[in-house]
């Protein structure tokens, strides 16, 4: 594995020279390491690039790592990973992605992840994205996440775009079944001329289902972010979305949250706040002796934590 790959893996997963437990490492469009365990089975797809991953019924407290990295320009990787989570499984899936280029050419990773989650499951899905390297080559990550939740299951999705990704278009779709919850925490930081577009399309189809979508973003320099979310309440359900954004310098953010109540028992709430850092927050930290720049850094770090 080359140095760039090691560095990217260190940032996006818990890689410390190796990965523990079930894992698959993808580097520049090729699978370089793969390990199944007693309860988690990882197999390459036969018809297209990607994996079929099955988590056995009743699996408890296991963590798997599915990181992918692109280590130089001129690579455009596309991968299809399907996750079959059987009933009553409790599992954490860490799927980081890093792209690196400094030869002036584009480096791109496009991961299409589908989750078929059974009944009574708890799935934590952690996704960290980063771009590294110098030069004008774009660093692109375009993830698609497609989730189907059975009954009484919980999926927590934690996605973070740390820095350096020039372009991203994230698409997340979910269908939430009876008594199930879909919880999303998204953190995105853009700087320079980066662009980030996030789309959510979530259907609450089962009675007693719920969605909690919390998005925090910081757009610095000339960067731009757009968030478009659609939450549909098609049953007796509760949906909450919250979009907070900080803009600095000439950063821009556009948020269009959409709530569709298609059932009299659907209760949907949206909160949004976009703006620069509040003057009183800066003053408070300056009154501790921090400079305005230090205060801004602390506020942004905390906000995206």
């Amino acid at each position: 594995m080359d140095k760039n790959a090691e560095e990217l893996l260190r940032i996006v997963s818990d890689w410390k020279g190796s990965l523990q437990g079930a894992h698959s490492i993808r580097e520049n469009g090729m699978s370089v390491e793969m390990l199944s365990t007693d309860h988690i089975h990882i197999e390459p797809k036969k018809d297209k690039p990607g994996l079929d991953i099955t988590v056995d019924k009743g699996t408890k407290g296991e963590t798997m790592y599915i990181p992918a990295c692109v280590t130089h320009g001129g690579v455009d990787d596309l991968v299809y990973n399907d996750f079959y989570i059987e009933d009553d499984a409790d599992v954490t899936i860490v799927a980081g992605c890093g792209v690196h280029t400094d030869n002036g050419e584009m480096a791109r990773h496009n991961g299409i992840h589908r989750f078929f989650i059974g009944d009574g499951c708890h799935v934590r899905y952690v996704e960290k994205h980063v771009g590294t390297g110098k030069g004008r080559g774009r660093r692109s990550i375009d993830p698609v996440t497609d989730v189907t939740l059975g009954r009484d299951s919980v999926m927590e999705m934690d996605s973070t775009q740390i820095k350096g990704v020039s372009d991203t278009h994230r698409m997340t779709r979910a269908k939430v079944g009876e008594g199930s919850s879909f919880i999303v925490h998204e953190r995105i930081m853009t700087a320079g001329d980066e662009r980030a577009i996030t789309d959510f399309s979530i259907d609450m189809d089962g009675d007693g289902s719920s969605v909690d979508l919390v998005s925090r973003s910081v757009a610095r320099d000339e960067s731009h972010q757009a968030l478009h979310s659609v939450i549909r309440g098609n049953a007796r359900c509760t949906g909450h979305s919250e979009c907070d954004a900080i803009i600095t310098e000439r950063g821009t953010v556009s948020a269009t949250p959409q709530l569709d109540a298609n059932n009299i028992e659907a209760s949907l709430i949206h909160e949004a706040a976009i703006g620069k850092i509040a003057g009183e927050q800066l003053l408070k930290l300056c009154s501790f002796g921090l400079t305005e720049e230090e205060a801004e850094e602390k506020i942004i770090q905390g906000f995206l934590k």
Binding site: Q281, K284, K298
Partner: peptide
């Protein structure tokens, strides 16, 4: 009036 911070 104390100041509130999301995330600190």
């Amino acid at each position: 009036q104390p100041v509130r911070f999301k995330g600190l």
